[in-house]
């Protein structure tokens, strides 16, 4: 199944995961011959979007191709056979999102060997959000010393799950 949408002037084509390499090959052969970037988006309950942007150097126009894979089956066929340069991006995406690219044995690219987890997944706990105290926890008229009194319910930082920053 393939569907094209236009948003903010960008044409995006949604492709079934089984059709992924075939659709990209077709786009390449139609003139979108320049591989721009490949990355992923964490859609939480809906799984992951793998996003590819191609460029047509003659018509000077871009095209975004997108495929989706479920969270518990994060696998997408590799594009190595279509664009050799996709390998680098697939390695980064595999490492940062934990998505497997079938037909491509991805090796670590950016993270140290001892690193655990996939840091661009939404559930990944940001160390900086745990190590640093949220400056917005103070109410007007309070300073750091007032934070020691646990008397009232304090505002929670947006986007940080409860309990993250509490060091007790």
């Amino acid at each position: 199944m393939t569907a094209a949408t236009t948003a903010y002037g960008v044409v995006t084509v949604d492709v079934d995961r089984a059709e992924w390499p075939r659709a990209v090959t077709q786009a390449r052969d139609e003139g979108f011959a320049f591989f721009d970037l490949l990355t992923a988006v964490d859609r939480e309950g809906d799984g992951f979007d793998v996003v590819l942007r191609l460029w047509d150097p003659r018509r000077r126009t871009g095209l975004v191709l997108r495929t989706r894979c479920p969270r518990d089956d994060a696998r997408v066929p590799t594009l190595l056979g279509v664009f050799a340069g996709a390998g680098w991006h697939e390695r980064a995406t595999a490492e940062l999102f934990g998505i497997a690219f079938e037909g491509h044995v991805t090796t670590p690219l950016l993270l140290p060997a001892s690193f655990e987890g996939h840091p661009l997944r939404k559930e990944f706990v940001l160390a900086a959000r745990v190590a640093k105290r949220w400056p917005g926890a103070k109410e007007p008229g309070e300073s750091d010393a007032d934070l020691a009194t646990p008397s009232r319910r304090r505002p929670q930082p947006p986007g940080v799950p409860p309990g993250w920053g509490e060091r007790s």
Binding site: K132, W134, P135, G136, K138, P140, G141, E142, S143, D144, P157
Partner: peptide, 11 residues
């Protein structure tokens, strides 16, 4: 502030 870079103290 999305990256928590503003520190304010007051009384």
């Amino acid at each position: 502030c999305p990256d928590w870079c503003i520190e304010i103290d007051s009384h």
